[in-house]
Design a protein around this nucleic acid. Structure first.
Length: 635
RNA sequence: GCACUCAUAGCUCAGUUGGAUAGAGCAACGGCCUUCUAAGCCGUGGGUCGCAGGUUCGAAUCCUGCUGAGUGUACCA
């Protein structure tokens, strides 16, 4: 099916063969898995026998002995020795043979670890999904990088992948920045102010919020507000009221939306603008188009510097009406129902959840969920993909649970084909990021800052380089640092980002991987190119490998295809970063070891070490490419 | 109130889905550049895996309760 490394396939066969002579259920055999041994002295890897104790009615240590005895190491060229170690059956590799197979596999394939399926599955991955009222921040960067790398990992694992973006370009929040610009823009443009388009528009969004907040705060001083407050207090449950030590503050918070929708002048103006937008008012649409052009240009720059690409970009202004007829048909089919007041809802009890979800308001307009339903069904029809992945933050876990349940109710064939790749928020040491209050790590600023820091680093280490080369390296190093940092977290982890110390260039980082790669390239140059050998010579060279240090590196190479598959299955890029780091670490250990200095070694072993080194470089480059990091030949 | 998620070294995080002695990086301390790039390597110290029970031959991992943090729970998007 796919090329999980040859070694693992052979080992699995040996295990299955050995165990099949003991009259065990297939799933019992399946459940026994190899793990690297904690100490190379005990063997290179092994499997535990605890779970066999019940069905075989014997102590695990006895079982391990019996199984070990049942395997004849001489029958398998990759195995030198099989030995029971307590309750474990441990295997010692015929190191030369294993090295030969693994390194040859890594060298001969242009993309070692790539999965190959006879019939690849088709996946659609939706990610990024920005709003057009403000520039992207670090949270979006996490989304962008996760979406892009998971897409790329799925592709590398052997699937067909379509990357899509859904830009949120309509709604009241969009009108806020439009209104502020209309009133205070004075005809300025991003060009006239020399500001990136999305930042330009974002500034008006912040301005709107500032004006609205001022309006609200001055209203709160009024007698009307006091009366509203008293009324609100009376309406509360007694317990709540007594427990609340700062009722004014609570009122201020809870009434803000109501104020926006009723009393607020600027709020009302924004709402009027939204109505005009929906009516297709020429002036409003014109302004909307103009500001969109600015924002999209800004977004494109950000995507380009992150290396993010989409096959298809959807806009909510084009999709927001989708789903309306699905809702109506759903009522006819009895999947949805009309409730009191005329709204349409889905009874979530019928899909295994609680409560009900409104899909159409009593005034006939649709809600967010409705367009998600419509968009999903339209996409399945258009692309006929096997799987749909939504890369969206974990605060929307419930939304997607409901969405998937309703979609399944509408079309049972969609069951288990939709996945929410839910990832944790990025917090600052002082808490959540807030665009409206300017408490954000801006994406463009961050990227720029990485380049500046990388440049300082290059300047310090290699002051004699010409400026063009310094720039080139700074960009590559800065991007590598940022991407590796973000992707090295498990997606579901809530990240605390400290601007002052989070992203480093040393230790387990992107630059460390680039550095390892550059070092290897330097070796290649020093020896006048990698050895080009005949079949026999190569086999002899690779078979000469076998020290612990060399095997550690060979083992990491062996693991690479497995980790790729694991990363794809879990949709977790951190499995890739982890394995790349391990590869670099094992290489660096060898590089610094006195007994493994290639320049001091002669004969086939020298060639063997060179080929192993070359294989590491090839795998590294492939792996870095999968997560969108550009390797450097010199650093 | 209810639902979901999380709690592991001073800090930031892993822990391959229940297996061998819980691991990295940073920070601290000690070594290694006339020898293939020191963005590196080697070593030392640092843990009651939030607390209390339970299941299991075996639990950081599964179950229950408690404590603490986050998120969600709209005819918002």
């Amino acid at each position: 099916m796919n090329n999980i490394s040859e070694i693992q396939t052979i080992l699995d066969q040996i295990k299955t063969e050995a165990l099949s002579s003991f009259d065990l259920a297939p799933e019992v055999i399946e459940n026994i898995t190899f793990a690297p041994s904690p100490d190379l002295k005990l063997g290179d890897l092994g499997f535990p026998c605890f779970s066999l104790a019940k069905s075989m009615r014997k102590a695990p240590a006895m079982i391990a002995k019996d199984i070990a005895a049942a395997i004849n190491a001489d029958d398998h060229d990759i195995i030198a020795e099989v030995l029971p170690v307590g309750p474990y059956v441990n295997f010692k590799y015929a190191r030369g043979v294993v090295s030969e197979k693994v390194v040859a596999a890594a060298l001969d394939s242009s993309d070692y670890g790539k999965g190959v399926y006879e019939k690849p599955e088709k996946w659609m991955v939706e990610f990024s999904a920005p709003n057009t009222n403000k520039p992207q921040h670090l949270g979006h960067v996490r989304n962008d990088l996760l979406g892009a790398s998971v897409s790329s990992i799925l592709k590398f694992a052997g699937h067909d992948v379509v990357r899509v973006n859904l830009i949120n370009d309509r709604g009241i929040h969009i009108c806020k920045s439009m209104l502020a610009y209309q009133r205070f823009g004075e005809g300025k443009t991003p060009e006239s102010e020399s500001i990136k388009g999305d930042h330009f528009v974002g500034d008006y969004y912040v301005m709107f919020d500032k004006i609205f907040t001022e309006e609200y705060e001055s209203w709160l001083e009024s007698d009307v507000a006091e009366a509203k407050f008293q009324e609100w207090q009376k309406g509360r449950k007694e317990k709540e009221r007594e427990a609340d030590k700062t009722p004014k503050k609570s009122f201020q918070k809870s009434y803000k939306d109501t104020f926006f929708n009723t009393e607020s002048e600027i709020g009302g103006a924004a709402k009027d603008m939204l109505i005009k937008w929906e009516e297709g008012d020429t002036e409003v649409r014109g302004l909307w188009n103009l500001m969109n052009t600015w924002v999209f240009k800004g977004f494109d720059e950000t995507y380009e510097s992150l290396g993010v690409v989409f096959e298809h970009v959807y806009r909510e202004s084009e999709t927001y009406l989708l789903g309306k007829d699905i809702v109506n048909k759903g009522v006819e089919r009895g999947v949805f129902k009309t409730i009191e007041g005329g709204a349409i809802a889905c009874d979530l009890e019928t899909v295994g959840l609680k409560g009900e979800k409104i899909l159409q308001r009593s005034n006939g307009t649709s809600v967010y969920m409705t367009q998600d339903l419509g968009t999903a069904l339209a996409r399945f029809e258009e692309y006929e993909m096997d799987h749909m992945v939504y890369v969206v933050g974990d605060e929307q876990d419930y939304h997607f649970k409901v969405l998937f349940a309703i979609l399944e109710a509408l079309d049972p064939k969609l069951a288990n084909r939709m996945k929410h790749l839910s990832y944790g928020m990025v917090l600052l040491p002082e808490g959540k990021m807030k665009s409206r209050e300017g408490k954000v790590v801006d994406a463009d600023d961050l990227i720029e800052q990485m380049h500046v820091l990388a440049h300082e680093s290059v300047e310090e280490r290699y002051p004699d380089l010409d400026e063009v080369e310094k720039r080139k390296r700074s960009v590559a190093i800065g991007n590598a640092a940022l991407k590796f940092y973000i992707l090295d977290f498990n997606p579901k982890t809530t990240v605390t980002f400290d601007p002052k110390k989070s992203i480093a260039f040393e230790g387990r980082t992107g630059p460390y991987c680039l550095y390892s790669y550059a070092r290897i390239q330097s070796i290649g140059r020093k020896v006048g190119g990698w050895p080009e050998l005949s079949e026999e010579e190569r086999e002899a060279a690779l078979s000469a490998l076998g020290t612990d240090v060399e095997m550690q590196l060979v083992n990491e190479l062996t693991d690479w295809p497995r980790m790729v598959q694991l990363s794809a299955r879990l949709m977790d890029p951190s499995k890739i970063t982890e394995q790349l780091y391990k590869l670099c670490k094992a290489f660096s250990t060898m590089y610094n070891d006195n007994d493994h200095r290639i320049k001091d070694i002669e004969g086939p072993r020298r060639d063997g070490l060179l080929l192993l080194t070359e294989a590491v470089a090839k795998t590294l480059k492939t792996g870095l490419d999968v997560i969108g990091i550009e390797a450097l030949n010199e650093m």
